[in-house]
Amino acid sequence: MPDEAGLNDTILYVCTTCRAEGDTSETRAGTRLLAALREQATGAGAPRIEGVECLSVCKRPCTVAVASPGRWTYVYGDLDAEASARTILTGIGLYAGTSDGIVPWRERPEAFRKGVVARIPSFTNPTDTP
């Protein structure tokens, strides 16, 4: 399990403009997912959860991205607005428990194994490289 510091420096971005195909709800699926995540992520050591206007993965709603200093960033799509919050938080906990953000494939929640859209290397300041 990650320590409190691992989760505290982890940011979960949630696309609030995601709209699932056939969804007729007035509130977009991404906004509902954001609300469910915030409701379930309570207490010390919870990741920071931020709604963002668009992650440009419109063909795979709902979409989230997880980032942390010094770790790879991941983008996940095809998440269910109402049922994915607990799964996402479990996956974020696994991510925060690593030094580089890479959770072994078999240890990832199934939604993360199937829903990965992108894996982006951690940012390196060009002045820090030889």
Rank of each mutant, 00 (worst) to 15 (best):
G70F: 02
Y76V: 13
I49C: 12
K59V: 07
P61A: 09
A35M: 00
C18E: 09
Y95C: 09
T42C: 01
G30L: 08
G115H: 11
S122M: 04
T129A: 11
V64E: 09
A35T: 02
T87N: 14
P126Q: 02
E53K: 07
A83Q: 13
N125L: 08
Q40Y: 09
N125Q: 06
N125A: 12
R119M: 07
G97E: 07
F112T: 04
G70P: 00
W105M: 06
E53P: 00
Q40M: 13
A85H: 10
V64L: 13
D9I: 08
A67E: 15
T17D: 13
Q40G: 10
V14M: 09
V14W: 07
L89P: 02
A83V: 02
A67C: 11
R19M: 05
C58Q: 13
R108L: 12
A29H: 05
I88G: 14
A65G: 15
D3R: 07
C18V: 12
T31K: 12
L89G: 14
P126A: 07
K59D: 14
A83T: 05
P69L: 12
E110Y: 06
A83E: 01
R32G: 01
F112N: 05
V75P: 04
A46K: 09
G77F: 00
T17Y: 03
T63C: 10
K114D: 02
F112S: 02
C62F: 04
S25E: 07
G45F: 06
G93H: 12
E107L: 06
Y13C: 15
